[in-house]
Simulated assay, not measured.
Amino acid sequence: MKNLEAQERDDDTVPEKLSAEDPAKSGMAASSAMDGVAATALRSVLSRVQQAAERAGCRADQIRVVAVSKTKPVSLVRQVYDCGHRCFGENYVQEMIEKAPQLPEDIEWHFIGNLQSNKVKPLLSGVPNLAMVETVDDEKIANLLNKAIESIGRKPLKVFVQVNTSGEESKSGIEPSGCVELAKHVHLGCPNLEFCGLMTIGMPDYTSTPENFKALANCRTEVCKALGIPEEQCELSMGMSGDFELAIEMGSTNVRVGSTIFGPREYPKKK
């Protein structure tokens, strides 16, 4: 299966044109301008979240915005941090391990990528302020996280169970029919993990995304019934740059917004 990195959509980009005769000055100017764009974009996103929350009949402070900073430099992350934002997400273990030590310790890091077995311990050891793993999609990963946390001696880790609500083979996540058993395993069988809710990725075609969001909400109803917990205790992580407002209106409490805040991804060019 493809990693979450390949699944995430790069939309709502923020174009910025700059020119200067001195390449060095041009680079500095571009960086400074991009910093300003990111700060302005963050404020816009938070405003849109507030409006969506009002339409959904909930408070904006009940919605967590994960600023997804993958492929972006530490300096840009710091600019968004300086605006008062504290929750950031990364898709790549190595990128998070490299960035986290260079940034303030009060950042709440969310890992939102496909987590491979051999990356579990490096992630937990390298990012002491890791707040959540949103992509637990089978018992093996849950068990490895549980065991590694115990050996490191850190506090319990919050996790979401990732559900593949669209049925696409290219996406990670357990099938809806299996989410109850996986949630029960995490909740009852992994004392070092704190089950906090469910996560999904909608289809790129936003017209069919509501069906994916409804499917996750249905999964929550089943999970909460099986675990004997109120639905308010089970978060829904759904919605990204192109559909986070719709996701909030349909019950999302955790949205993952990357390119709309930071601009288009900056992948290395293939040789």
Rank of each mutant, 00 (worst) to 15 (best):
Q94T: 03
E169N: 12
N164Y: 08
G239C: 01
A6W: 06
N218H: 12
I152H: 12
K225S: 12
D106S: 02
L188C: 11
G239S: 05
A226S: 11
S125E: 12
N164G: 03
I229A: 03
D137Q: 14
I97Y: 07
P101S: 01
A6D: 15
E108R: 11
G153N: 04
I229N: 04
E231N: 04
D205T: 10
C190E: 10
E105P: 02
A38M: 12
V163T: 07
L145N: 01
E5L: 13
T165G: 06
M132W: 07
P268F: 13
F262C: 02
F262R: 08
K72L: 07
A142P: 01
N192L: 13
N118T: 12
S172H: 10
V66H: 03
I97A: 09
S47H: 09
K119G: 06
D106E: 12
P23D: 10
L227T: 06
V223L: 09
Q79N: 05
A226Q: 05
V93T: 14
E8C: 13
V77F: 05
F160L: 13
L76E: 08
L198F: 12
E8N: 14
P101Y: 04
E5M: 14
N218T: 11
A142T: 09
G251S: 12
E16L: 14
S252D: 08
A183F: 09
R64K: 14
L144K: 15
I149V: 11
M250H: 08
T135F: 08
F213K: 05
T13Y: 02
F244T: 00
T165E: 05
T209P: 03
S241N: 03
S241A: 02
E134D: 15
E194N: 11
L42W: 06
E134P: 05
A41E: 01
L157G: 02
G258Q: 00
S31A: 14
T13H: 02
A56H: 11
G178I: 09
P191G: 12
V45E: 01
R154P: 01
E231P: 00
G126D: 02
C219F: 06
S170R: 15
L188H: 12
N143W: 12
E16S: 12
M203S: 15
S44F: 00
N192G: 08
M28K: 13
C190Q: 10
N254Q: 11
S19M: 07
L182M: 10
H185T: 13
V65E: 00
L193A: 01
A38D: 00
